[in-house]
Simulated assay, not measured.
Amino acid sequence: MHEAAPDVGDQSEDASALAITLGAAIRFARKNAGLTLQTLAQRTGLSQSFLSQAENGHTVPSILNLHTIARSLGTTAHELLSPPDDDVSLVRASDGPLLEASPGATMRRCARRSAVMAANEITAGPGTSASSATEHAGEEFVYVLDGVLEIELGAVTYRLSPGDVLYYAATVRHRWHNRADRPARFLITSSPPF
């Protein structure tokens, strides 16, 4: 599994704060589940040293790795990323930090707290794809803001342009691709968060 993640020493204060907060949430969930770092490493396929760096706020796992960690801890990536007591979430256009959605693609969380949905903005560089296909409980919709995006949904591939919306059961195996030679930007909303 791809473990490389940015070292927070090279990033903004927002990224450093995210790394520390997320690391504490992962450690809390791991201890609450009664797991050692070694056991979590075995369950996730990630190295113990990588997990330790994440827990200590020295790195931010990619979204794919964060979902893997969360599932192994019996929670969701959304819960690990969410502050515990926010009833209102305002995310300005300039708000960061950005998380790695997959190599060549970043994700900006559009809502910091919600128990019923996760809304994210993905910017996918030319020729990039989601790290792997996924399926999970709930529903999703994708709204393309810029560029051209392909969504594999089961055995069918949908080509989406700006303004197009695709809504589907997330239990169907799905994956996005930007096969174009320019970036694509899209919103993806999942309910419930996974």
Results as ranks from 00 to 15, higher is better:
D164N: 13
Y158H: 15
P162Y: 09
L153N: 11
Y143T: 15
A137T: 14
S102E: 00
G57F: 06
I69Q: 02
K31S: 06
A29D: 04
R182D: 06
V8M: 01
I26N: 02
L66G: 02
S132H: 14
I63H: 04
N178W: 05
A169Q: 13
S49T: 10
A77N: 03
T59F: 02
V8P: 09
V148T: 15
A133V: 10
A70S: 10
R109L: 06
G163Q: 09
G23N: 05
A15Y: 05
H58M: 09
A101S: 07
T76C: 10
A184D: 04
G74I: 13
L145P: 01
D85R: 11
P83R: 14
P193V: 11
K31N: 08
P97M: 05
A19G: 03
S72W: 06
G125H: 10
L187E: 07
F194A: 13
R112M: 08
Q11I: 06
G147A: 08
V165F: 11
A155C: 10
V144M: 09
G127Q: 10
C110W: 02
R27V: 00
V165A: 14
V88C: 01
S190G: 12
S129N: 14
C110S: 06
G147E: 07
S190C: 10
P97K: 02
H136P: 14
P97I: 12
G104A: 03
S62E: 01
A101G: 07
G9N: 11
L187N: 04
A33K: 07
T39V: 15
N65P: 10
A124W: 12
G45R: 03
W176P: 11
V172A: 13
L80I: 13
A130L: 11
R112K: 13
G45H: 03
F194S: 14
L153K: 09
N32Y: 04
A93I: 01
L51P: 00
E140A: 15
L149S: 10
Q48S: 12
V91M: 00
P61E: 00
A111Y: 04
D146H: 15
A41Y: 00
P83I: 13
L80Y: 06
A54D: 02
E100C: 06
E79H: 13
R108F: 02
R108T: 01
S102N: 05
A118H: 10
V156R: 15
P183E: 01
L160A: 14
V91D: 00
N120D: 14
S132L: 14
R27N: 08
A54N: 01
E55R: 07
T128A: 09
T157R: 15
F141I: 12
A133E: 14
D95G: 00
S114F: 05
A170L: 11
D95V: 01
V88S: 08
R159C: 14
L37T: 03
P83T: 12
I122T: 11
A77L: 04
L64C: 06
L90S: 05
L149I: 08
N120Q: 13
T59E: 03
C110D: 01
T36L: 10
H174R: 15
S16W: 04
V116M: 08
M117N: 03
P84M: 06
S114P: 00
L46H: 10
L66P: 08
V148Y: 08
R175Y: 05
A169G: 08
G154Q: 12
D7R: 09
L98F: 10
A180G: 15
S114Q: 02
L51T: 01
L81F: 05
D7T: 12
T59L: 07
G125M: 11
K31T: 11
E3K: 04
